[in-house]
């Protein structure tokens, strides 16, 4: 890829990140009270945030029908769309832990990171702890991959 091409790619990705943050801010996802009010159906339920996912899926559904018909993405040699369809304990356990943290703090990863700009304690503590959790999990995965590679292959059922 030419230097000009990669510069254009990085600029466009920067723009996509910017758009994502505006979407989170406008939609209300960066306000934990709204998020908790949406998740908690036993209290004074605020169903509005369902429309965030609705609006996002409505747009992305169309893009997902059209874009992968191209021979390749604009700046990469091929598409890297996840293809796994199996449901395992990792997926369920991870979603359970993530959901519990989301319901407790009212932040999911994107809104937590974007809210750092407000320079208030909650996003700082949240993102600090989240990064720690991600790094820990990355290290666990790396150790596991290395031990799988080191051990003789005998019916290992772990998948990448």
């Amino acid at each position: 890829m030419s230097n000009q091409g990669s510069l254009l790619k990085l600029l466009a990705i920067f723009g996509a990140g910017l758009l994502f943050a505006l979407g989170l801010g406008i939609s209300g996802m960066t306000q934990p009270a709204k998020v908790v009010g949406f998740l908690d159906i036993t209290g004074d339920w605020k169903p509005e945030l369902a429309f965030v996912m609705g609006g996002a899926i409505a747009v992305h559904l169309i893009a997902y029908r059209l874009v992968p018909r191209m021979s390749k993405p604009l700046f990469e040699p091929k598409f890297g769309i996840p293809s796994r369809r199996d449901i395992d304990g990792r997926l369920l356990g991870g979603a359970l832990l993530f959901g519990a943290g989301w319901g407790l703090g009212g932040y999911c990863p994107g809104p937590g990171i974007v809210s750092l700009v407000s320079m208030t304690w909650a996003p700082l503590v949240f993102v600090g702890a989240m990064v720690l959790g991600m790094v820990l999990m990355n290290l666990v995965d790396r150790a596991r991959t290395q031990s799988v590679q080191a051990a003789p292959r005998e019916g290992s059922n772990s998948a990448a």
Partner: peptide, 16 residues
């Protein structure tokens, strides 16, 4: 909030 962050960080990596 710290516990929430830790749960989210571990959970999203585990659950992809």
């Amino acid at each position: 909030i710290a516990v929430a962050g830790l749960l989210v960080g571990v959970g999203v990596r585990l659950g992809s």
